[in-house]
Simulated assay, not measured.
Amino acid sequence: MSLNVESTRIPTVLAPPPLRLIDDSGHAVDESQTGGFTLPDTATLLSLYRRMVIARRFDVQVTALTRQGRLATYPSALGQEACEIAAVASLDSGDWLFPTYRDSIALLTRGVKPEDILASFRGDWHSGYDYNEHRIAPQATPLATQALHAVGLATAAKLKRDSTVTLTLLGDGATSEGDAHEAFNFAAVWQAPVVFLVQNNQFAISVPLDKQMACRTIADKAIGYGMPGYFVDGNDVAAMFAVTSAAVDRARSGQGPTLIEGLTYRIEAHTNSDDPSRYRNAADVDVWRGRDPIERLEKYLVSEGALSDSERASITQEAEDMAAATRECMTVKAVVDPLELFEHVYANPRPAIAEQRAALAAELAEDDANQAAAESATETGTQR
């Protein structure tokens, strides 16, 4: 007897409205509907606005460079700025961020230079920044693996009795991975000071959320692990910052992990090699463009008299200067040493690695000699 999966599937329960502090129109939400969270002050919101504008300009610029063939690939975070900027803004300088491949604007906001962020996307080096200097782990391409690393560092910090908190960014698809389950469970059991921030952009490449899970929200899963879970409007940077900051404070005070789901949308393709028209409706993209996180906050700040024309022009100019610097650094030809392939593989190099390195060095030396001979012959022929 065969089992008809479709006929036995439990109907999906409608999700509750996400927590928000500023609505789509840029108006403050009544405090009775904010779950006890309060709107950040205007100075904080203005700082978040500035960071989002600069992050958006960087993302657009890098996407353009990729389309020009100056980068191998780039996963855009256009439309997800509120989640990423709120995450970085909630951390202290001594805390650690564990990002994914899509979180380049989080790195930029935390102070990593554009050329260092883009090194791996151009093929120069795997992660071109100093992890310890910035307190940022390598951008993880395998889904959810960095969540385990975040829990490990957080647990070590707890054992050492220091105040470090870790925050890891995940996608909705990553929560379907076994590594995510292990990270959630271990963190909750051992009360690790870690925050899991899931950017639910509703597609794991081409797989929609309702094909991944039958629960109302990803945040609902938190109760099964024994930690708090929050379902937040991921395009409301005020709400994201308030909830994430509270989760970081909770972790730092020894109360354990928190799972936060930010409901957002990936406006651009998964990467430049993806064709999103094959699996999603363009009309849905237009709807989410109308929920732009930057425009929402801008409307609120203008209505409060906190964002003047001169301030907006200054922020725009800062963003353009950063974009120009990004273009400039991509005009510098990368100096690549193939022998670096063998560096940092083992603390004590193994004989097999040494043999392979020697073989490649000999091959490169032979190529250099042949090229030099060819150039010499050409020069001699020209002189004759």
Rank of each mutant, 00 (worst) to 15 (best):
M1E: 13
M1T: 14
N4V: 01
I10P: 13
T12R: 13
V13I: 10
A15Y: 00
A15F: 00
P16E: 14
P16N: 14
P16A: 07
P17A: 05
P18K: 06
L21Q: 02
I22Q: 02
I22V: 15
D24Y: 09
S25H: 15
H27N: 15
A28S: 15
E31A: 15
T34W: 06
G35V: 06
G35A: 07
G36V: 11
T38W: 06
D41L: 08
L46Q: 07
L48N: 08
R51V: 03
M52V: 09
F58D: 03
D59R: 02
D59A: 09
T63D: 09
T63P: 03
T66H: 11
R67N: 14
G69N: 13
L78P: 03
E84G: 09
A89F: 07
D92K: 15
S93Q: 14
S93I: 11
D95C: 01
W96F: 02
I105M: 08
K113R: 09
E115A: 15
D116N: 11
I117N: 10
A119C: 03
S120K: 10
G123Y: 05
W125M: 15
N132K: 15
N132S: 14
H134L: 08
I136F: 01
I136G: 01
Q139K: 11
Q139N: 13
T141H: 05
P142I: 10
A144W: 00
Q146V: 04
L148G: 15
H149P: 05
A150G: 06
L153E: 09
R161A: 11
L167T: 01
S176Y: 08
G178E: 13
H181T: 14
N185W: 06
N185G: 03
F186N: 14
F186R: 08
V194I: 10
V194N: 12
V194D: 10
V195P: 04
F196A: 12
Q202G: 06
S206L: 10
P208L: 11
K211F: 12
A219K: 09
D220M: 05
K221P: 11
Y225A: 04
Y225P: 06
G229K: 01
G229H: 08
N235G: 02
V237K: 11
M240C: 12
M240A: 12
F241G: 04
V243L: 03
V243C: 01
A246E: 03
A246H: 12
A247V: 01
R252F: 08
G256C: 06
E261K: 02
Y265K: 02
Y265S: 02
R266Q: 06
H270F: 08
N272D: 12
S273N: 01
D274W: 06
D275R: 12
A283H: 13
A283S: 13
D284C: 11
V287E: 10
R289V: 06
G290E: 04
P293K: 08
I294K: 07
E298H: 10
E304M: 10
L307P: 05
R312E: 04
T316K: 10
E318N: 03
A324D: 11
A324Y: 00
E328P: 05
M330T: 11
V332N: 05
P338N: 05
V345N: 07
P351M: 06
A354S: 13
Q356W: 00
Q356E: 10
A361Q: 14
A365W: 02
E366G: 04
A369E: 11
E375S: 12
E375A: 14
T378A: 14
T382N: 15
